[in-house]
Amino acid sequence: MGEPASSDFPAVRLHVVTGKGGTGKSTVAAALALALAWEGRRVLLCEVEGRQGIARMFDVDPLPYEERRIATGLPRGRGRGGAVHALHVDPESALLEYLAMYYRLGRAGRLLDRFGVVDFATTLAPGVRDVLLTGKVFEAAKEGGRRGGGESYDAVVLDAPPTGRIVPFLGVSDELAGLARVGPIKHQSDLMMTLFRSERTAVHLTTVLEEMPVQETADGIAELRAAGLPVGGVVVDLVRPRDLPEEHLVAARTGALDRDAVTADLVAAGLAEEADAGLADVLLAEGRDHAGRRALEDAQRALVADLGRPSYELPRLAGGVDLGALYELAALLRAQGMA
């Protein structure tokens, strides 16, 4: 792969990964965590949507509400790697921890949970729910240590909600404005916004080369900037291999490929009889569809380039995503300078 490019985000401590559903944002978050841990760094990968996606990708048991080491930053035997820890954050556990930390309720907090008060509170006030979810991430990402001790990390990667919800999710002070004007929750939300709006945070957006996801990415960037939240890079995921040169794509798209020559090649390869042109017609139709798809992707790639942010491309992997694939994607992110 050669020497990696220097990181585009050397000062960033909290990497927030969002994207339209179906664009692979969880895969990108996991690969980014591995990439950041490549040179001996300790990285925490967090999820907040309750799907246990991290456990499935890394083939480990479902994650509890505690930090667990799930991988090293390098495949075994390949130099000096750091470690990736993971944390599954759920609002109920976060609220109980918050009550114990700031109000010293301890056993009383667990009693409240038995009566359903915790679920009632987080349902009644979604802004409080987001503060609780992001608060745990904030504690891990802030500089100067963590309240109550705990592991220290060089970087934190958050597998965040989709693009359409990312601004309210990170804009915890605005969401709480009508609920808590004073007190510990308000104080913590203000501290969190200081981090979220600083150069130590970057919100990365994941897309694919299709019109709707690219447009949602552009809208998300505009909304993040309007909210004063720092925009990171754009990861173009699930990129198809480019097996044909441009002139062949143009010929396929315009119907200029030589049908007789294609038939002759099929016969020479033992794939068709001399008189059988049916297979050639099928291949030419598929080639035309493929070339048309390529033209649409190239148009969307140009729009991504016009967004004014660093962009990175990850391939569609025929074998799906497992730990080996995540290491492969992590290496590509490093080579392109994202980590």
Results as ranks from 00 to 15, higher is better:
residue 141 A to F: 04
residue 165 R to E: 12
residue 123 T to L: 14
residue 330 A to R: 09
residue 82 G to F: 00
residue 323 L to V: 15
residue 32 L to G: 07
residue 180 A to K: 02
residue 169 F to V: 05
residue 33 A to D: 00
residue 181 R to P: 06
residue 316 R to G: 11
residue 148 G to T: 13
residue 144 G to A: 10
residue 204 H to V: 04
residue 93 S to Q: 14
residue 149 G to H: 13
residue 60 V to H: 05
residue 70 I to Q: 00
residue 258 D to M: 09
residue 81 G to D: 06
residue 58 F to N: 02
residue 291 A to N: 07
residue 107 R to A: 15
residue 231 V to F: 04
residue 147 R to P: 04
residue 129 R to P: 05
residue 16 V to A: 00
residue 131 V to L: 15
residue 323 L to I: 13
residue 283 L to M: 15
residue 219 D to L: 12
residue 230 P to N: 11
residue 232 G to M: 03
residue 314 L to C: 00
residue 267 V to F: 07
residue 174 D to I: 09
residue 133 L to R: 03
residue 220 G to V: 04
residue 324 G to L: 04
residue 260 D to A: 15
residue 257 L to T: 10
residue 171 G to C: 12
residue 83 A to T: 15
residue 77 G to K: 09
residue 157 V to D: 10
residue 160 A to F: 02
residue 62 P to Q: 05
residue 83 A to R: 13
residue 337 G to E: 03
residue 211 E to I: 11
residue 183 G to Y: 12
residue 204 H to L: 13
residue 267 V to G: 06
residue 202 A to I: 12
residue 31 A to W: 01
residue 114 R to F: 14
residue 16 V to N: 04
residue 232 G to R: 03
residue 244 L to K: 01
residue 146 R to G: 05
residue 255 G to T: 08
residue 150 G to D: 12
residue 150 G to P: 03
residue 265 D to W: 14
residue 79 G to A: 03
residue 40 G to Y: 12
residue 33 A to M: 08
residue 281 D to C: 01
residue 32 L to V: 09
residue 230 P to K: 11
residue 194 T to L: 10
residue 77 G to D: 02
residue 12 V to T: 14
residue 12 V to N: 04
residue 144 G to W: 12
residue 259 R to K: 15
residue 89 V to C: 05
residue 295 A to D: 13
residue 334 R to G: 03
residue 249 L to Q: 13
residue 235 V to L: 11
residue 232 G to P: 14
residue 184 P to W: 06
residue 295 A to R: 14
residue 260 D to W: 00
residue 243 D to I: 14
residue 40 G to L: 09
residue 124 L to W: 14
residue 39 E to M: 04
residue 36 L to I: 09
residue 26 S to F: 06
residue 134 T to V: 15
residue 205 L to Y: 03
residue 16 V to E: 03
residue 81 G to L: 06
residue 272 A to Q: 10
residue 185 I to V: 15
residue 290 H to N: 08
residue 307 L to G: 12
residue 144 G to K: 06
residue 202 A to R: 13
residue 179 L to E: 08
residue 228 G to T: 08
residue 95 L to C: 04
residue 42 R to C: 00
residue 212 M to G: 10
residue 262 V to E: 11
residue 31 A to C: 04
residue 53 G to F: 02
residue 221 I to S: 03
residue 245 P to S: 03
residue 129 R to A: 02
residue 140 A to D: 13
residue 246 E to Y: 06
residue 336 Q to S: 06
residue 124 L to M: 12
residue 46 C to I: 09
residue 30 A to G: 12
residue 152 S to H: 09
residue 324 G to K: 06
residue 98 Y to Q: 13
residue 280 A to T: 13
residue 261 A to P: 09
residue 35 A to D: 05
residue 336 Q to R: 11
residue 83 A to Y: 10
